[in-house]
Design a protein around this nucleic acid. Sequence first.
DNA 1: ACAATATGCAACTAATTGGTTGTATATTGT
DNA 2: ACAATATACAACCAATTAGTTGCATATTGT
Lengths: 107, 107
Amino acid sequence: MREAEIYKALGDPLRLQIVTRLASGSTYTIGELSKNLGVTRQGARKQLQVLVSAELVQLIPKGRETVVALEVEKLTAARQFIAQLERQWDQRLQDLKALLEDGSDKP
Amino acid sequence: MREAEIYKALGDPLRLQIVTRLASGSTYTIGELSKNLGVTRQGARKQLQVLVSAELVQLIPKGRETVVALEVEKLTAARQFIAQLERQWDQRLQDLKALLEDGSDKP
DNA sequence: ACAATATGCAACTAATTGGTTGTATATTGT
DNA sequence: ACAATATACAACCAATTAGTTGCATATTGT
């Protein structure tokens, strides 16, 4: 179940906060992003690498600094996968209901 | 960022497979669910406990066996949180665009 | 009553993870 | 040219995790 990787990437408080910042804030470089996270810059950088491996963010070197960019398509894919689970679950409930009604549509 | 817990729960191949089965299949008891997962029953049970702690599944003892039930509301919450991130990201892009257009709505 | 079944609980191990510190390298502004 | 800045890379550490084996306990069907 390779789809797990993206949830694993999101499944850490620090990383989720980073992603949240990237989605809503105007933070750009690694240095800026690493501020006020309660960990050292190297600590933040390490988590950033996890997000890169999961292809949730991209690092773009620009001169002496590096710009961090969110890859929103991955978020979309993660959301859609969950949506599909929900749909399957709904279907199962409907099937069960139909079974209880014994195939007929008695009111 | 306490929201991370649910993604962490989903962020393991075995656990995600369990959730997928619960959503789509007709597996019910712990024993049934543990079959064909490539791990021992106790191994599966341990992962099941993680899902219970994240309130993604519920265990309902029934006689000598235990029924495993998916709590779909948690999935919904997880999906909605991601959807919100996507929306924020969209908004940010729009703001940026507006800024580039210098505030006016020149065609 | 008793054998089979379904589960629970605990100890142990190997691997992974989240974080640190310390050092080296490249880029920029004056 | 050089000091300041932004980042990279590696070694190390404690905690967590994913899985195992082994044993105990409760429930059910005949």
